[in-house]
Computed example of a mutant assay.
Amino acid sequence: MQHNQLEKVKMANGFIAALDQSGGSTPKALAAYGIPKHAYTNEEEMFDLVHDMRTRIMTSPAFDSNYIIGAILFEQTMDRKIEGLYTGDYLAEKKGIVPFLKVDKGLAEEKNGVQLMKQIPNLENTLQRANDRHIFGTKMRSVIKHANQDGIKAVVDQQFEIGKRIIAADLLPIIEPEVDIHSPEKEACEDTLKAEILDQLNALNDHEHVMLKLTIPTQTNLYKELIIHPNVVRVVALSGGYSTKEANEKLKANNGLIASFSRALAQDLNVNQTDQQFNATLEQAVKSIYEASV
């Protein structure tokens, strides 16, 4: 783990860009970008198109390290190149942006009001490849829909169990137990989630550090104890389906919480925009998310 990247992630003003849509969510991301399903005939063409979209975002002058601390990548993106460099190297060397990798393989069926992560086969091999590609950290997502104590505990236990394996590989894990913004029990879910996370954090050794990626809480500043916890490098917020404007407004109310937005970052980008239009639209989104984060 590079010390200068750790300091940037811990201390720098800005936000984490999420560019990690995987196989299941890629068609929706492409459709939002103006590329319908009939524009590609197989998965290979689909992933080529989404890499082109991500390349356009990352090479834009608006994708600027003065505003963006890090970027979360899909595994295929990590293994592809931008301007002759593997994506992680391009981000670190050309942009000064810290690269992260999504390592989960999607969600299991709902049980006890939550969706755990599916099994992650060959995780250690993936983590070794991440190190070879100069990736700094990882991200993995679960979803909480109801305030079921057993379900929420199972989510947090799974996240930290895998997180410790990631720490052992000298990478920084982003723990992401997302609370569904449409849950009728959202606030109760968040109270239980906070307690379970604190239990896990308090059981870590001094050298074990994590980041947390959480839904913006209903109760303002609910996650203050997590933000200041000595084992937490940073707490970032997911947009969770909120529009950019709504996500930014909710984020601003929470001191010390910074953004890690996906949809809210790219929602107004379109394949048919000129470079000038595309860059101006991305710059507006980047600056608005940055302002909400600082």
Rank of each mutant, 00 (worst) to 15 (best):
D48F: 08
R141K: 12
L201R: 10
E161H: 03
K153Q: 12
S262K: 11
M117Y: 01
N248P: 02
V210A: 04
V233E: 14
I181M: 13
V103C: 09
P177W: 05
R141M: 06
T215A: 13
P36L: 09
R80V: 01
G113R: 01
I135P: 01
Q115S: 11
Y223K: 02
Q159Y: 00
V235W: 13
Q158T: 04
L212W: 11
V294F: 14
D52E: 15
N248H: 04
L212E: 06
L198R: 07
A71G: 00
T274V: 09
A237M: 14
T55Y: 07
K111H: 01
D170H: 15
T55G: 00
G84I: 15
Q277I: 10
G240T: 07
V286C: 04
L116A: 08
I162V: 13
D180V: 05
Y33C: 08
N148P: 07
K224T: 15
A62V: 09
H51Q: 09
E246Q: 13
H229E: 09
L212K: 06
L30H: 11
T55P: 01
I97H: 04
V114R: 05
Y86G: 00
S239F: 03
G14W: 10
V98M: 06
P36Q: 14
K8L: 11
K118S: 02
S25D: 09
L85F: 13
K118Q: 12
V103Y: 10
V232L: 09
E185T: 12
T77A: 10
A62Q: 10
A147Y: 05
A188V: 14
G163L: 08
V236G: 03
M140Q: 14
T281D: 06
D132C: 02
V235M: 14
T138E: 06
I258L: 07
E7M: 08
E225P: 12
Q2F: 07
S239P: 11
I227V: 14
N272C: 02
G88W: 08
A154L: 02
L107G: 01
P99R: 12
E187M: 08
D79V: 00
L91C: 04
F74V: 00
I162T: 10
T281R: 10
V179G: 06
A280L: 14
P61D: 12
K10R: 15
Y40T: 07
A154Q: 06
H134G: 00
M117H: 02
K213D: 04
A285N: 15
G256N: 11
A17F: 06
E75Q: 14
T87A: 11
Y290P: 05
E75A: 14
E44Y: 15
E45W: 10
E176P: 03
T77I: 06
G256A: 07
I68Q: 09
K10Y: 09
A154H: 02
T55S: 13
I258Y: 09
T192L: 15
